[in-house]
Design a protein around this nucleic acid. Structure first.
Length: 278
DNA sequence: AGTGTATCCTGCAGGC
DNA sequence: TGCCTGCAGGATACAC
């Protein structure tokens, strides 16, 4: 579910809601969400103040005082929802996994239907180590088309698999990988190292454009994604290929195709994104 | 070393 | 109505 634009939208909404809050107590309702023993997690966060909210790839980072950072990976259905008081009745999250309760009485709830998400506390140093194993941020000013081209050259993976690999590039998921490939005219199964320099420039441009436009639209809600206010993202209306199999290509009216590889659906236009030449 | 596949989990839509 | 199958925005342990 949430990719870079969704995580970014959540971060922006969360910042105002939780900055300065002090964590008084933590309820772990689903321990499988944690990537460390519950006691260790609780010890790492309890009593600390939230000093910042940021993002790395698809991860939401909640920075605490005294050298701790909570990294939240939202998985497919994860939500981070702040509440002024413990929610009751209809507005209550249906699959709360971790509840942070603040000194002020307010709360932050990590809710995750499928529980593919993770919540983990690190020291800043530990987090830097984790972050270093991830690829560059595609929206960074310093991230150039040449970087993308050179990295693509080193891989035989299909272009879409390459884009989904967080170690290669951070924050790109299935929706935006397919969208960017379409706009660049690159077939999702093209071998990464076969992507030309010219195509790399187009892909670099389309990736950044798609991610930026999606942030501007508040992300893409297909079904589950909600921002920190519980609202939907509006980028679904701007999708060119994702989820549009059988519908006409917006450029050439060919039927959009859907194929499955690496256990994920890929969408492309057979005319605008020519099939890889064996 | 680098890639593809199966798997974790719940819910929903569509076919019969 | 109910049962079944397939599908879903992610990440990763494993086999090759």
């Amino acid at each position: 579910m949430p990719e870079l634009p969704e995580a970014e939208t959540i971060v922006r909404g969360l910042r105002t809601a939780v900055l300065g809050e002090v964590i008084r107590r933590v309820d772990v309702l689903h321990q499988d969400i944690l990537r460390q023993p519950k006691a260790e997690f609780v010890r790492g966060v309890k009593g600390r103040r939230i000093d910042g909210v940021g993002r790395r790839g698809k991860n939401v980072l909640i920075r605490l005082d005294r050298d701790r950072v909570i990294a939240v990976n939202l998985g497919m259905t994860g939500r981070l929802l702040p509440f002024p008081t413990l929610p009751r009745g209809d507005g209550r999250p249906r699959h709360p996994a971790v509840r942070f309760r603040f000194e002020s009485g307010a709360l932050l709830i990590f809710d995750d239907t499928r529980r593919f998400g993770t919540v983990e506390v690190f020291t800043e140093h530990e987090w830097q180590g984790r972050s270093a194993s991830m690829g560059p941020e595609p929206l960074d000013r310093e991230y150039r088309a040449r970087d993308l081209f050179e990295a693509l050259q080193r891989s035989r993976a299909p272009a879409r698999s390459w884009l989904l690999d967080q170690k290669k590039i951070a924050g790109v998921g299935n929706i935006y990988a397919n969208e960017a490939l379409y706009l660049a005219g690159v077939h999702p199964q093209r071998e990464a190292r076969q992507v030309s320099h010219r195509e790399s420039v187009a892909l670099h441009r389309s990736l950044r454009r798609v991610l930026r436009d999606a942030i501007r639209a508040g992300g893409t809600t297909i079904r589950d994604y909600r921002n920190a206010e519980g609202g939907r993202g509006e980028y679904a209306r701007q999708l060119h290929v994702y989820g549009r199999d059988g519908e006409p290509c917006l450029k050439c009216r060919s039927h959009i195709c859907r194929i499955v590889f690496a256990n994920r659906s890929a969408f492309y236009c057979p005319t605008c994104q020519p099939v890889p030449t064996q």
